[in-house]
């Protein structure tokens, strides 16, 4: 399980989550995004296209990052959720907190 960060020409950071986002690795992703935020990035897309599952700690870290990014005048968008992950966001009502796009391209276009 790994996280990859890429930046497009406009400076939007796309974070790919390969595998799972859970209690054992969430701090790794959090730190990578916070480092990028400290480095001046303000627009982020988390891409879950290659993600199997997310636990409540993973959801929690997304909530925390979204708050921190908004406090810095930025924006965090989510993309690529499969049907099960989409349902998880709906059950927890976190779909009301996040802008969720079907694909990373769609999320990037919305910035």
């Amino acid at each position: 399980m790994t996280f990859s960060l890429t930046k497009d020409k406009r400076g939007v950071v796309v974070v790919g989550v390969d595998g799972q986002l859970i209690v054992g690795n969430r701090q790794d992703m959090k730190q990578k995004v916070l480092d990028s935020l400290d480095g001046g990035a303000r627009k982020f897309v988390i891409d879950f296209t290659r993600t199997g599952y997310i636990d409540s700690s993973g959801l929690g870290v997304l909530v925390s990052l979204s708050k921190k990014i908004r406090e810095q005048g930025g924006d965090l968008r989510l993309a690529g959720l499969n049907e099960d992950l989409q349902t998880l966001f709906e059950l927890t009502k976190l779909d009301t907190l996040f802008a969720i796009a079907k694909t990373p391209a769609e999320a990037l276009a919305a910035f």
Binding site: S56, S57, G60, V61, V63, S64, T92
Partner: peptide, 16 residues
Amino acid sequence: TLPGRLEREDGRGLFV
């Protein structure tokens, strides 16, 4: 999922 708790980082485990 209550409005006052939605933006908390923790507390979703049992619900999930």
